[in-house]
């Protein structure tokens, strides 16, 4: 069921008049915390892992997809990241937020991939997903496709480090300290990258709106 995670806001881009159809799950307030689920999985509870996985699978996939801009690579990195999470369950200690742990693993997988393949191309290779939900109105579908194309273009223009922090901010919902921890930089560096990235993203989206 598609429900807005955040209260509907109109940022001025003219896209959020039907925010109740945003495809993000509601927060699981009453559910077990991620770290508790991970500990249960460590003790052999596969169902706990399934719940944990389903909380984070979509956002982690989108993070990697937007970060590396190649669907095949993103899928490989996604599987690699989860494999590491699965393998590390015996050593897992809930000292930090699970989300921080998860995205740090994924971020490191991406960095390793770049090191392995020095010639990381900047071409966008994300196939457009033209299979909209059957319940969506044609206008909504069009709006979503336009918004996605804008976002793809805006994100693709960002330097990799800025794209990384802005995705951690927007997609994973991490705060500044968590972003610094995931990307292994100090807080000021993370803050600087995030400020530049969000400014460019806002400017690019606003410019696109004016051009259309």
């Amino acid at each position: 069921m598609a429900v807005a995670r955040n209260p509907p806001l109109d940022p001025g881009y003219g896209l959020l008049s039907r925010a109740d159809q945003v495809a993000y799950p509601p927060p699981m307030k009453d559910a077990l915390r991620d770290s508790a689920l991970m500990l249960r999985y460590r003790d052999g509870d596969v169902d706990a892992f399934r719940v944990l996985y389903e909380r984070h699978n979509d956002s982690l996939y989108r993070y990697l997809l937007r970060l590396c801009k190649h669907r095949d690579i993103a899928e490989d990195l996604y599987q690699e990241a989860w494999s590491k999470i699965i393998k590390s369950r015996q050593r897992y200690r809930p000292t930090a937020k699970f989300t921080t742990f998860l995205y740090r693993v994924a971020h490191n997988c991406f960095i390793d991939h770049i090191r392995r393949n020095k010639r990381h191309t900047n071409e966008i290779s994300i196939d457009p997903d033209d299979s909209p939900s059957t319940t969506d109105e044609p206008l909504q579908v069009t709006e979503r496709l336009i918004a996605r194309e804008r976002l793809n273009r805006a994100l693709a223009k960002l330097p990799q480090e800025q794209r990384d922090v802005v995705l951690l901010f927007l997609e994973a919902g991490l705060n500044l300290d968590e972003i610094a921890s995931v990307t292994d930089v100090n807080r000021e560096t993370a803050k600087s990258r995030l400020r530049y990235a969000t400014a460019k993203l806002k400017a690019a989206l606003a410019t696109d709106i004016h051009h259309e």
Partner: peptide, 28 residues
């Protein structure tokens, strides 16, 4: 930032391929 995030979330709708879910859960 909420506005930017909302725009981002509204526009982004890449569903995760089912075979990835299957592979990860099978491994788990």
């Amino acid at each position: 930032n909420d506005a930017l995030r909302a725009t981002y979330q509204f526009g982004v709708q890449e569903p995760i391929p089912p075979h990835l879910d299957d592979a990860v859960l099978r491994k788990a």
